[in-house]
């Protein structure tokens, strides 16, 4: 059950990553054309997201989040166990 949940979570992460990438590839060019035609170019971390290492940042943030959530889940279970003991 627990393994299933972890697998499901990672499928979701990978799925959302895969879903975002093709959506990004196309508009990147049209947007550059737009911005150069209308206004002075606004600096964005395009290269960072395309060839750069933004995925490392995502992985680090996910690790921090996962750690905190696992901590909370363990705490939650401990309290549940205590509640059960109290009831008996």
């Amino acid at each position: 059950m627990r393994l299933f949940r972890i697998v499901a979570l990672w499928c979701f992460i990978l799925g959302s990553m895969a879903g975002l990438q093709p959506a990004k590839a196309q508009p990147a060019q049209t947007e550059v054309e737009l911005s150069s035609a209308q206004q002075p170019e606004v600096e964005m971390a395009d290269t960072l997201r395309q060839e750069g290492k933004i995925y490392v940042v995502v992985i680090v943030l996910l690790t921090v989040l996962t750690g905190l959530i696992i901590y909370l889940v363990v705490l939650d279970r401990k309290v549940s166990r205590l509640e059960k003991q109290m009831r008996d």
Binding site: L9, F12, S16, L20, K24, P27, R49, L61, L62, I69
Partner: peptide, 14 residues
């Protein structure tokens, strides 16, 4: 699920 989505999409979306 929503927090994982926030971190992933928050960093990678347009």
């Amino acid at each position: 699920v929503l927090l994982v989505f926030t971190v992933v999409a928050g960093m990678l979306s347009n």
